[in-house]
Nucleic acid binder design. Structure first.
Length: 810
RNA sequence: GCGGGCGUGGCGGAACUGGUCUACGCGCCGGCUUUAGGAGCCGGUGGCCGAAAGGCCUUGGGGGUUCGAGUCCCUCCGCCCGCACCA
């Protein structure tokens, strides 16, 4: 009883919250409080939680508690993104079923979350690998299929040879597999896709309707990569074929002096299949991303000995194959305008091709491509018109001639969702020789994942080995059928989990529409920036598609997003190879959950990376111990009615209420919130003897201690609850968030800064609430000021009430 | 290269609409307490000069706006993050 001991305090409160189901919220109508859906990104359960988990759930929990205590009905659930490669790779090494290792890990996560005292509604918990969940993942897949948003096609796709599976474009970083870093290959395969590109404009436009960090918005905007321009048809008379190109600069059409095709373009060899061309194409196809993508790389290419016709002036221009043109973007062929495009300029210089300026007033285009605006030149009927206007006029003219039209191009590709892996959600499709790809009927869902002996990928899904499972009957004709053996990308699982939480135990539907609409959207989403494109784009796409299917009532899933920074240790990134990993389990075991949670929120603004140092955590522990001791040793009294003249500690308590409310409610500044409570506790310590000596001081002291516990509760829930109960006998989470008394925020006097010409000359006490005139008189009455102003002419006097008086003199 | 962010003590970092720069913590120094402690408590701590009072300087460098700039503007330097031959 004489020492702060988290080992006894923390389990006691955890038991109260578990026994009373304190954090569960009902879906039944009748609760009139406004709703707040606070959600942290669900963890991927692998091994034990790491320090990043401690951080994200500490931040989210603080927000959830704050919302509850400001009168909201808070949904704060938890689940596990359980399918995925690491568990499967572990299975390949050890033979242990991925379900076993995953569920062991889930059990560990759950245990630690409870030990951390995170306020989760456990009644809504699930893992995405449970048939009762993925049944609905499959159900949604079939809805998308019906709507034409899921489809199967043969395409050149990215293949990771190490993981032996295809990858989505978003999972390829600099030509390498996002997971294992292996360079990806391109393969021609028939795969399942989701038509996310149909939502490209909506995904772009609706960014304006959500409150997200600007860098995430920018990343999504870049990824979607919308460009407005025109498709223009160049005809090759010799082959009798039209070649459309996409350009964002139709105003430069008259400056096109050659034409370039990507090496992958299917017509390259039709144009010219000489050994030289074949060599170039083969070389370009085999040399992969790393050198092809290299910046400012020397341009290479081969002339194809053919020409195409420029539709605006009938000019015949030569055709080249060159690897600076990408097959994936636009049409895989371009019109080259060396005067106004840097890349084309470099190519023209190297191959001695003409450079014709078509927009005047720019730089010397023979030396350098100009991108400046100006009047059109060398452009026939368009000469003299400003290029911006000419843009539209040329498009109109092309359209009327049937040689082109205005189009929009996107960088975004459809989402490839097939994976040739075991540990994922089976795709609910049956192939039949007669009926083709047939959806599994709804009443046969879920298509459960069968057990297999060997998880190792062999270029086809390990599921193919489960022959009893694969062989089935066609739901359409009753003949022999074979199940799809690919599984879905795990990002599909996490693209709708936030919807399932709303109605997690519904067995007849993924959710009830009324229940869903009552909770959605997520009001505050919290997670790492690493998902800025992948998860956050896919989840937005799902929400929009489901809205169009009339299954959800919102078009954006996450109204407000907060991205937290990475935790480093002593300035370095934590990694197993460096051996500098801090395990939350160890820290919590040593210092207690409250200390660990407060420290991680205290080391810096949560949006930025915090630096963990083992020395620093002692300071927080000391502070918590001081607060506990203050409560344990406080003289008896009444904490609710602080009577008498306000003492310094009472003012400090109100100041802390004001500060923490603002920081936690609006600025997410948990570190300065905790600093404010530390200051309050220091104030309590400083004056506790004299205050306890006077009767009204006791109640003010106890009020201040209770306030500290109350304000600390979102960050250190166990100690906050303990201290508050010691002072008031009540449960802090059932109490409203305290409101600062404005009258006590300011003291009755303050230190007035008196400056002459912006330089500090004197400090004097001034009464709070004094008028500008009174402050000015007071300042001018100061002996020091009088002395220094002697013989000078006062030009003007600036008065900032509550702060300073500045005299400008000459 | 393009877009965005940042630069404050020995360290992590505060500073709301321009108004006492360095809150809070770590570290360090001094003291108290303890059988002892790497435990606890109290005090001090931006730099330079000074016994002190006090003075001068200080938010990456330079310039500007202002009575007043960490904060706003220009410029240079440095770091971080995204995008990167996207036509």
């Amino acid at each position: 009883m004489d020492r702060y001991d988290p080992k006894t305090i923390e389990p006691r409160w955890q038991k109260v919250w578990a026994d009373e189901h304190t954090w569960e919220v009902s879906n039944e109508p009748g609760d009139e409080r406004p709703k707040a859906y606070v959600l942290e990104m669900l963890p991927y359960p692998s091994g034990e939680p790491h320090i990043g988990h401690l951080k994200v759930y500490s931040v989210g929990d603080a927000i959830a508690h704050h919302r509850r205590r400001t009168g909201h009905r808070v949904l704060h659930p938890m689940g596990y993104d359980a399918f995925g490669l690491p568990a499967e790779n572990h299975a390949i090494r050890t033979g242990q079923h991925p379900r076993e290792s995953t569920e062991a890990s889930i059990a560990e996560f759950r245990k630690q979350f409870r030990e951390w005292g995170i306020s989760i509604d456990w009644s809504r918990e699930f893992g995405t690998h449970e048939p009762s969940y993925y049944r609905w993942t499959q159900w949604i897949f079939l809805r998308l299929l019906e709507k034409g948003l899921a489809y199967r096609k043969e395409a050149a796709v990215k293949w990771c040879p190490k993981d032996a599976t295809v990858l989505a474009n978003e999972q390829v970083i600099d030509g390498r597999c996002e997971r294992c870093g292996t360079e990806v290959e391109v393969r021609q395969l028939t795969q399942w896709f989701f038509a996310i590109t149909e939502y490209a404009d909506a995904l772009l436009d609706d960014l304006a309707t959500i409150d997200w960090p600007s860098h995430v918005v920018t990343m999504q905007r870049n990824w979607i990569g919308r460009s407005e321009g025109a498709e223009v048809v160049f005809r090759c008379e010799e082959l009798g074929t039209d070649y459309p190109v996409f350009t964002t600069r139709p105003d430069t059409l008259f400056g096109a002096t050659f034409f370039v095709m990507a090496p992958e373009h299917p017509d390259v060899l039709r144009m010219n299949d000489s050994p030289e061309v074949r060599d170039y194409v083969n070389h370009a196809l085999t040399s992969q991303a790393e050198d092809r993508g290299a910046e400012n790389r020397e341009k290479t290419g081969v002339p194809l000995g053919r020409t195409v016709t420029n539709p605006v002036n009938g000019e015949e221009i030569p055709v080249f194959v060159a690897d600076y043109v990408l097959m994936e973007y636009g049409t895989g062929a371009i019109m080259a305008v060396p005067a106004h495009d840097e890349r084309d300029h470099a190519f023209a210089v190297k191959f001695g091709l003409p450079i014709r300026e078509v927009i005047g007033g720019g730089e010397d285009v023979q030396a350098q491509a100009s991108t400046a605006d100006g009047p059109m030149v060398n452009s026939g009927q368009f000469d003299g018109i400003g290029n911006r206007e000419a843009f539209g006029q040329i498009v109109d003219w092309l359209q009327s001639e049937g040689k082109g039209e205005a189009t929009v191009n996107y960088r975004l590709r459809d989402w490839l969702v097939s994976r040739q892996r075991y540990w994922g959600c089976p795709i609910p499709i049956i192939y039949c020789d007669i009926c083709g790809a047939v959806p599994v009927p709804e009443d046969q869902l879920p298509v459960e994942l069968p057990d297999v002996q060997d998880y190792a990928p062999k270029g086809k899904s390990p599921l193919a080995a489960a022959e009893d499972w694969v062989a089935t009957t066609c739901p359409s004709c009753g003949g022999a059928g074979r199940r799809e053996t690919d599984t879905m990308d795990t990002f599909v699982d996490s693209s709708w989990y936030f919807l399932r939480y709303c109605d997690a135990s519904n067995e007849t539907a993924p959710w009830d529409r009324d229940v869903l609409d009552a909770w959605m959207p997520v009001d505050q989403y919290i997670g790492g920036v690493e998902h800025a494109i992948l998860h956050l784009m896919y989840a937005r796409f799902f929400t929009k598609a489901l809205a169009d299917l009339d299954l959800v009532g919102v078009r954006e899933p996450f109204a407000r997003l907060f991205t937290q920074g990475m935790v480093t240790r002593d300035g370095a990134k934590m990694s197993k190879s460096k051996g500098n990993v801090v395990s939350p389990g160890a820290i919590v075991g040593e210092h207690g959950a409250d200390t660990a949670r407060c420290y991680i929120l205290y080391v810096g603004h949560p949006a930025e990376g915090g630096d963990w140092s083992d020395d620093g955590i002692e300071g927080i522990h000391r502070f918590l111990a001081r607060l506990w001791r203050a409560a344990a040793e406080a003289p008896a009294g009444d904490a609710d009615n602080p009577a008498g003249e306000p003492t310094a500690v009472l003012r400090k308590a109100h100041w802390a209420i004001d500060k923490v409310s603002r920081d936690l409610g609006e600025r997410f500044a948990t570190h300065t919130s905790i600093a404010a409570v530390i200051e309050l506790v220091n104030e309590i310590y400083k004056g506790r003897d004299e205050m306890s000596a006077m009767p009204e001081g006791v109640s003010q002291l106890r009020f201040a201690i209770a306030t500290a516990g109350s304000l600390l509760f979102p960050f250190a829930p166990h100690l906050g609850a303990e201290v508050y109960e010691l002072m008031t006998g009540r449960r802090v989470w059932e109490e409203p968030w305290p409101v600062a008394d404005p009258a006590l925020l300011e003291s009755d006097s303050f230190e007035l800064i008196v400056q002459i010409g912006g330089k500090l000359r004197d400090r004097i006490r001034a009464p709070a609430g004094a008028s500008k005139d009174e402050l000015e008189q007071l300042a001018m009455g100061s002996e020091k000021i009088k002395a220094q102003l002697e013989g000078k002419e006062i030009v003007k006097v600036v008065v900032v009430p509550g702060k300073l008086v500045n005299v400008v003199a000459r």
